[in-house]
Design a protein around this nucleic acid. Structure first.
Lengths: 115, 115
DNA sequence: TGAATATATGAACATTCGTTCATACGTTGA
DNA sequence: TCAACGTATGAACGAATGTTCATATATTCA
């Protein structure tokens, strides 16, 4: 947490600007997060991973897309830290990143299923 | 809730397919919902509306974009029922659609602000 | 080592998306 | 009724996005 000198001329304004810039960054990141959720292939992957971890092979079958398409989307989910990977032999096992992912997703499903 | 005849040949398969198709539709809608959240201009608008309703004029100033851009994004938010409009004289007052919007958004902000 | 299998990734292409510009619509007040 | 104001919207354009295809990497097993 930064401390501002109340006696300098620019204090109030600077704080306000800093605050607003911070908000802008956060809101940008929030939008980026939602963007990652905002694709059918990725929502299918997330849904498939909801209960158990899965390897790419099984995920590919589960979402009904090509292996390449699934791998590309997994990379996006990985980079956003929405999923984790675990390598075992020839296979990569993916799982959901943390509980926030589950909670956000579950809320959206709940919202979608309402009138 | 539909009832299936356990004695017909296609029962199990049909139920399974129906269930999967339903899931697909839901997951598509969920992705669509997230897509609407997934734009910086729209997250700024949602953030601005978090406490109070606002007219387009003030929203335009709040998010720092042109009135046209804001109106276009408000239309998208409106069609997704994430916001509501109320007309009063020359002005249109926008507010958040329901509590789900707030909860989903707040969770995403919370997630974003974490390590 | 070489074939088979699982996964990842770069390039290309088509599609979608957000902004801008111009303009239309609707309301208010002179 | 006409000017001013607030808002909405269509067309156009550039940027971003998702899939496909081809291919690379990595691991296992014979």
């Amino acid at each position: 947490m930064e401390v501002y000198d109340e006696n300098t001329v620019h204090t109030a304004k600077a704080r306000e600007v800093t605050l607003k810039m911070h908000q802008d960054e956060v809101l940008y990141d929030v939008a980026e997060l939602f963007k990652v959720f905002g694709d059918t292939t990725r929502t299918k992957i997330i849904c498939a991973l909801f209960e158990n971890e899965m390897c790419v092979c099984d995920l590919t079958e589960a979402v009904g897309m090509t292996q390449s398409a699934v791998s590309h989307q997994l990379r996006i989910l990985r980079q956003a830290r929405l999923v984790l990977v675990r390598r075992e032999g020839k296979s990569s096992y993916y799982s959901l990143g943390d509980n926030h992912v589950k909670r956000i997703f579950a809320l959206a499903v709940e919202h979608t299923l309402e009138p």
